[in-house]
Structures are given as C-alpha cells and as structure tokens.
Design a protein around this nucleic acid. Structure first.
Lengths: 366, 366
DNA sequence: ATGAAAGCGCTAACAC
DNA sequence: GTGTTAGCGCTTTCAT
C-alpha cells in the first residue's frame, strides 16, 4: 500500500510543494484542495479552513504551468512593441503590465526592432507559450506574419489598423484630431509657414499622421511646399537630420509640427546648435507626450496620446475577447482620444504684434 | 477500438495540433516524434524525415507548458528592475532579452516601483510561473523578500550585493573605479571644488557610489564640505532639486559629480534656468551612460557602466547556474568594468589659464 | 459535499 | 531503434 511517489525525489526544486502535500496535510483529497483554492462555493467551510491552514503551513503555490495545461488558458498576454528603447514604449509597457497583472495576467514582452525575422520568431514563441491574447502595438507590422495568430483565433488587438477579421480589436487613435489640435494651435498663434517632420512612411500610422497634417493645413487654406515635408523615422537622430534639412532651406518655416516627440526633441537639438531660438524664432510641436517632453529645454508643446488610455483599452479589449464566449466575440474599434498640451516650445511668430508684446515683457531670452 | 479522444473537441484553440497529430500523420509513435523534435541522435533518419515532414504539414509547435511540466524547467527567466520608465532599464532589458532568447529562454519582466507590496506579489508570480532563474537588477531590494526564492534554490543574480549563499551570483560594478574616473577627470581639468549629488542613501548601490566619491576626493587631498553632498533619488526631478540647492549656496562648486545620468540631466536643467553656463561656469559628470546622455545639451560627460556587460553577465551567470550540476554551483562574483566617456559637459574651471585659452578660441558660447 | 479517476501535451524509463 | 507507459501538477467530470 505504500505510495509509489516520493515527494522529495525527481528534478523537483527543493521547497516545492504540490497540491498533494496540502491534501495530505489537511487530510482531504486533492480535489477538495483544488476546489478550495478556486473558491468553489460548495466546499464545507470547515474543510476549507483546514485546507487554507495547510496551504499556509506548507507554503503551497499552485503551479501555473499545470493549471494552464489542463485549463487551456495560460493567463499570459503577449505585448509586441517595436523598440523598447524608444521612450514611448516603456510607459506603455508599464501601464499595460500593471493592468494585466491586476486582471491576473502575466505579460510576455517582445520587441520587433523592425526586424521581420525577429518578429517571426517572436510570434512563434508567443504561440508556443500559448498566450491567451496578443497586443500588437508596433505602429506597423507585416500582416502576413500575424497570419498564424489569426488562424488560431488568438484574441488580437492592434493599434490603428489590422486585418478585418473576427476576434480582432483595433485601437483607433484619432490622429486626424490630434494633429489638427497641434496645427490649429500653431495657426491660432499666427503661424502660416508650418513644416512637418514625418515618421517612416512605409508604415501605416506615420502615414496617417502625415495625411492628417496635410488635411489640417488644407482646412485652414494653408499651402505646404514639398520641401516643408521631411521624412524621418521617429527617432531623435532622424529629428536632428530632418530639422537640419529645414534649417538649410532659404526661408525657415516659423513652426514645425513633428510626427512624434522623439522627432521633436531631435529638432530642438538641431536648433540648439544654431542661432535660431525656440520658441522665439521657430515653434516646435511634438506628438505622444512622452514623459521626457516636459523636461526638455524648453518644455515641449505636444499632443498627448495617453499611454494609459492606450494600455487600458488594449488590456480591456483583450480580456473581453478572451473571457467572452468565443462565438460572439467580434471586431470592435476602440477610439483613443488625444489632447493638446501647451508648454513652452511654441509662441507667436517673430515679427507679429503679439510677439513684440511678449518680447517687451521679457519672454524673449533667459 | 475507436479512440476515445477527439482531436477537435474541448477547449483547445482551433488550429492547435498536438504531438499525437504529428505521430498519426507520420505513422509513428509519439515517442518518436518527441525524440525527433529533441534531436535525439538514435532516431532512424528515414523516420525523422517523415516526422519533420508531418510537423511541417500540420504546423506543429511543441507546447511549452507541457514540456515545462514534465521537465521541471520552464525556460523562463525573471528579470526584476526598479522602474521600467527609468531610461537606464529599457536598454538593459533589451539586451537581457536578446541574450536570453538566443539561449532559448523567455523573459518575464517585473518592475518593483520601489513598492514592497508590489515586489512581494511579483516574486510570488515568478515562483508560480516556475522561472528557472531570476536576475534582480534593482540596485536595492529588501532582502527578506527574496527569502522564498533563496529557499527554493532558484538561481539568482544580483547587482552589487546579495546574500552570501550558494546558487547566488553577484555582478560587482566597480563603482570605486568608475567614480574615481569621473573625479580624476575633473581634477585633471583643474577642479578643486567638486560637489556630489547622490542617489537614495537607503540603498546599497547609491551608498557605494557616494563612498567612492568621498574616497576619490580624499585620495586627491580634496575637502568636501557637507553642503556639497546633496541627496537625490536618481530621478531627473531630484537632480533639479539637488542642483537648485547647490545653486543657492554662497559659492557655487566648479563641478558636480552625479550618482547617475538622470540626476546629471536634472542638474543640467536646473542650471539652464539660471545664468550659469555648462561647462563654462560649472562642469557636470553623470554615471551610467544611458542613451540619452549623448543627446543632452551639452552632451553629457559620464561614466559608462555598460548595459551590455551587465546584461550578458547576468544571463551568462544564470545560464551557468541553471545548467550546471546543482551541487557544484556556488557563489561567484562577476566584475563589471566602467569607463569614462568625455563629452561636452565638462571643461576647465572658469578663470584657469586653459579656460581663457578655450574662451579665446571661441568655445565659450554659441 | 467529497473523493476517485481521467486526462491536458509532453518526456523519459522501460520493454521489445 | 521504436513503441508502450507512467507520470509532471492540476482541473473536472462522475460516482457516491
């Protein structure tokens, strides 16, 4: 009658206790322990008490892997970003993680680094790990790579755009409105000559931002000469390069709208190396409102795309998708609002009456 | 004789194929499939061929959870950082992740946000997920929280310091040398009046840096008045506050050494708001060499503590620990070197002969 | 209400 | 060399 299993044998890590240890200690079956842990209401309160006590005593922690294996749900979420060193993402990740953990999910983070090979292997890893859902927050990913996830009907959430399929959620950032907020702000200050530094136009979201800029300008009846449209790639370095191109122009625009904050920060740096002062000679507006923006010199006026909104919509939509009856889950779009945050990188264009007033009152230079 | 198991039943995700599907398709047993996948050399090449073909055809991906359950190894590594939004960490994470993935490990990232409650739950999650090892890169964590990990003999790697136990690896950053490099650089330029902005002194590593500063100054026979020792908390905000305290002093030091880059960046900001110019009036040195440092205005002179070195030592030591015979794994220290990166936030103190020369040659102002 | 037992997908003895 | 089988730790019928 002796049990063939020896609890302290095998490759088990020392100190690891299983459900059986708890059952034995509490003098109940493992089923009862399982039910107690999962708070099934039918367990006798007295037994439950004993079980909890035993759990405490032996330091039992349910093994997530085993749970996942039998339940078919891993309680892990995949989060795919383009590049973790881009300051926009850590803030998003942090928020996403907090929310996910609060809902009982673990997060597997992967960055594509814009490398399709890396992305492919990343997706395979997520599949093998059996994540319950994946948030693809890369602002541009090759659609065919996502094919496998789609086939297996993984709940998926995209930013901006995604295949038109069931089980897919899309976070729609209102670029049109966000960019318009920036442009209108500049126009309201009196700017007519506004340049735009875009992100990589091979991607969807940067493209949407550029289109939004052109549309906003057209709405105001403002012309945008082609040389005022410079392509960057959303890095600070590319912002520097792009701004240098603008500086080399015969006539400097009086304001620059940027596709994201890092670009704007690059522009600020390029300008710092010249005699042009921000905002006196030229105004700069960013997009994203990353943490850094408020600490720039001068603090950056920018359009806020709330990380919190983005992250919470992502987690929420995935959770809904996962926990809903599979059959009735369907594509849904979640609007993500934007708002203008006015700081000190924008001002009236030099030479306008309000600018002179501002100058007279000491705003001009430190 | 009909199989009781129906492959397309249950909660299994559509498109999921198991080892049995492959076995059936290839006309072999599941054991042979397993052996093939795990590249056991004894399998008949002809059969292996058939198995690989079947795998390809049905799109089989081994289920990591099941593997982990039976093998006792999850192939997951925990990575604990203090705060993912601190720019130092994303770079570390990125490197750590790349290396871990290259070794076949997944990474579970957690940030403590300096919150013991959060940290506790984080550690519990890692335990439940059965990670194979944990890197604690927080520069300061309550030791008793790590107790459970230690008990279960999880391979652990710490930065700077950790309990003196087997299975524990320690990454020793050579602060003494790093800080000395910074101080010597300043001294070589002619600075005698050097202040220090520290990190939170309740933590080990900031303390070590401060001690190193005092020692380096003493070595040079330089006195440090108490008001030149300001405590910050390694954030940009605290750097601003600390620098403001220094600015309020009767005589401004001619140079400031900072405990980390974010602090130094804060100092730069505080100075920007005044009439004091960097580096003409005051030199600033950071520590870490985060990505941002090179893009500051002016680019920050700093002491590099290589993320790559740190990450690779962490992954390598964990891997060694995990894959080694448990019995012979023992505490080991891994030295992490530092090196000075001279940029443009440091110069000769104003009034010294070389400074006048520099001024004359147009270095003074833009 | 509780326990026994059947698996979840896989690896590793153990037979042949 | 290959197949059979016993679990890994857990959840969940199905009896009782």
């Amino acid at each position: 009658m002796s049990s063939p299993r020896n609890n302290s044998s095998d490759r088990r890590r020392p100190g690891t206790v299983s459900i059986r240890d708890v059952a034995q200690r509490a003098g109940v079956s493992i089923a009862t322990v399982s039910r107690t842990v999962n708070r099934i209401p039918t367990v006798n309160p007295e037994l439950a008490e004993r079980v909890w006590k035993a759990i405490e005593e032996v330091g039992y922690l349910p093994n997530t892997q085993a749970r996942a294996l039998v339940s078919g749900r891993s309680h892990m979420l995949g989060l795919i970003v383009s590049e973790i060193t881009n300051p926009f993402f850590p803030e998003l990740i942090q928020e996403f993680e907090s929310l996910a953990v609060a809902q009982g999910y673990e997060v597997l983070i992967g960055s594509t680094n814009y490398d399709p090979v890396r992305t492919e292997s990343l997706l395979r890893r997520l599949l093998q790990r059996n994540v319950d859902g994946v948030a693809i927050m890369t602002f541009g990913i090759e659609e065919d790579l996502v094919q496998k996830l789609v086939e297996r009907e993984f709940p998926l959430v995209f930013v901006d755009a995604g295949p038109d399929l069931p089980n897919i959620q899309v976070l729609k950032v209102d670029y049109a409105e966000g960019i318009r907020q920036g442009v209108q702000h500049l126009a309201a200050l009196g700017h007519r000559n506004i340049a735009f530094i875009s992100g990589p136009l091979s991607q969807r979201s940067p493209n949407a931002r550029r289109e939004a800029f052109l549309k906003s300008m057209a709405e105001l009846g403002l012309r945008v000469p082609p040389e005022h449209l410079v392509e960057g790639n959303h890095t600070m370095e590319s912002g520097i390069v792009a701004m240098e191109k603008l500086i080399a122009l015969e006539t400097l625009p009086t304001a620059v709208m940027c596709s994201n904050d890092m670009t704007a920060i690059g522009a600020l740096h390029a300008l710092y190396r010249t005699t042009h002062k921000v905002p006196e000679d030229i105004s700069v507006v960013g997009f994203d409102d990353i943490h850094l923006a408020q600490f720039m010199l001068p603090p950056l006026t920018t359009v806020q795309m709330s990380c919190k909104d983005l992250a919470s919509a992502a987690v929420e939509s995935l959770r809904a998708c996962i926990e809903a009856d599979q059959s009735k889950s369907q594509r849904k779009e979640w609007p993500i609002p934007t708002r203008l945050v006015v700081r000190q990188s924008t001002a009236f264009p030099r030479g306008s009456l309000p600018a002179r007033v501002a100058t007279a009152s000491g705003r001009q230079s430190a």
